[in-house]
Design a protein around this nucleic acid. Structure first.
Length: 458
RNA sequence: GGCGUCGUACCCAAGUGGUUUAAGGGGGCGGUUUGCAAAACCGUUAUUCGCCGGUUCGAAUCCGGCCGACGCCUCCA
């Protein structure tokens, strides 16, 4: 039984899809004004992990991830660089897609862009106005009236009457009925340049929250299964989405809200000024493998803060190598595959089913790795066990995706190893050690076994 | 001020009332194996879960207080 922690109820709940066997999943995507950083990808990787578990459980998952390609930051960036909005957003969208692919994240079925769904947003805003949930302010913007929705604040457990709003509420929001009312439609301002759409309320652009409501409903229906995002989006973004969507459609909106915790870098929040700000390409340049990044981020539970440090690469590398070595050992003795999994797979699955307990499942998996290695050492392993073992590794990797595609050993390395074998047979240990160093320089570790030299990547 | 999260070994990290006198990984130490290595295996590395009380037959797990770290409170995943 799959159980997920639902932010709405603040507890783990049994997961039951609306339509048997099918899941509609919406995940908040990036605002494409800059390169996405590793903290963003922590969330996208959690969502990927969720999706892989759902797929492994046999669900047919339909996944929508939005691309926020119009908002204050994208407009500012375009202005600052003297480019058009679409120049900026296309550039960063492409970078984002590339990074997703590098990190082996299964692509969403659709990546709707906000700018292509403005009509739908306008329609939804009209519905909200008709139902007296929204009003036109003096400046031509449309605001959602928080007091018109009695459940406002239920996701984040906020009672609006008790809320002390911060100084960040800008003074130009003087015309609001309630300072906490949020914009559904923002009237055109000069600094928006040529970024605007016609609407029944004049020129302007949609408020940020509108896009997720309009696009999720368009692609997944008024009422769908799962909506994910980072914790920081719970308030106000998701709270506002719920308010808009429920009020516009008079139906329930999302059954399960899942939020991933923050990622810290070197113990603190990422900040460009401190310089602890990693993006995927930085890490790859530092010699980190995508699989190592996945390992580091998946070895902590998604609802705990994870501290990302370069030092963790070693741990990741060793863990991954351990699995690769075992796979190689099993491959040598067995090629007859059936579909069975070892008994340990049940505990592994139970851990995953308990709110995606990736660290626990990893622990169970490594415990199994040790037991199989032990049996291999003692030569007490059966064909059946080795076949099941290979299946388990394949299954494991369908969820974690931390095993790199094996690259073939270059001929030059094989030649050096063969040369070294001759020196070893002649007990010329000095020469053999020099050849081992040369192989190492080419990026390979040679291991002397009874069956001849074996290789592994550094 | 309001809401909320976290504090487990040298490091990372599960475990949220009894099969745990606390998984798993990394690191260290000792051993098996090896020409030496590598990999693998075996043993070892927290009588204890931030601190202090309480509830209970029994608590890392529940309750209260304190200390410490952190997040959100209008557009940051």
């Amino acid at each position: 039984m799959l159980r997920l922690y639902n932010s709405l109820s603040r507890k783990k709940e049994e997961f039951i899809p609306i339509i048997d066997g099918k899941i509609n999943l919406y995940t908040c995507g990036p605002t494409v004004y800059d390169v996405a950083h590793i903290g963003n990808f922590r969330t996208f990787l959690f969502e990927d992990f969720l999706k892989r578990v759902l797929i492994a459980r046999g669900f047919d998952v339909y996944h929508v991830m939005n691309i926020t390609d119009v908002d204050d930051k994208t407009i500012q960036k375009a202005l600052a660089e003297g480019k058009s909005l679409s120049d900026i957003t296309e550039y960063y969208t492409n970078l984002f897609m590339k990074d997703l692919s590098i990190l082996k994240i299964i692509p969403a079925d659709v990546y709707p862009a906000a700018t292509e769904h403005v009509d739908g947003m306008i329609q939804m805003i009209q519905q909200l106005i008709e139902k007296n949930h929204a009003y036109l302010a003096q400046d031509g913007s449309v605001y959602f009236s928080i007091k018109s929705f009695k459940d406002y604040g239920s996701l984040t457990n906020i009672k609006m009457s008790e809320m002390q709003h911060s100084d960040r509420v800008s003074s130009d929001e003087y015309s609001l009925d309630n300072p906490q009312d949020f914009a559904l439609w923002k009237a055109y301002k000069d600094e928006d340049g040529d970024v605007c759409w016609e609407s029944p309320w004049g020129k302007g652009r949609p408020g940020w929250h509108m896009e997720c409501s309009a696009m999720s409903i368009e692609y997944l229906g008024n009422h769908f299964d799962i909506h994910c995002g980072g914790v920081d989006n719970k308030f106000p973004h998701h709270e506002n989405e719920i308010a808009q969507s429920v009020c516009a459609k008079d139906t329930p909106f999302v059954n399960y809200w899942l939020h991933s915790e923050f990622l810290l870098v070197d113990g603190g929040k990422m900040s460009k000024s401190i310089g602890n700000y990693y993006c995927v390409s930085d890490l790859i340049e530092k010699g980190m493998m995508p699989e190592e990044i996945r390992y580091i981020l998946l070895s902590a539970h998604y609802r705990t803060k994870v501290n990302f440090t370069i030092e963790k690469q070693h741990e990741a590398k060793k863990g991954i190598q351990r699995i690769i070595e075992l796979r190689a050992r099993l491959n040598e003795i067995n090629d007859n595959m059936d579909n069975d999994l070892p008994l340990e797979a049940e505990a592994f699955n139970n851990a995953l089913d308990d709110d995606l307990d990736s660290p626990k499942a990893l622990g169970i998996f490594f415990e199994w790795v040790r037991s199989v290695n032990s049996a291999l050492d003692k030569k007490t392993i059966s064909d059946e066990q080795s076949s099941q073992g290979l299946n388990f590794i394949t299954y494991f990797d369908s969820i974690y995706s931390i095993l790199p595609a094996s690259d073939s050993v270059p001929q030059s390395v094989i030649d050096l190893a063969n040369e070294r074998e001759i020196t070893r047979q002649n007990k010329e240990w000095g020469k053999a050690d020099i050849l081992r160093e040369e192989i190492l320089k080419k990026g390979w570790i040679v291991k002397d076994t009874i069956d001849g030299p074996k290789f592994s990547r550094i």
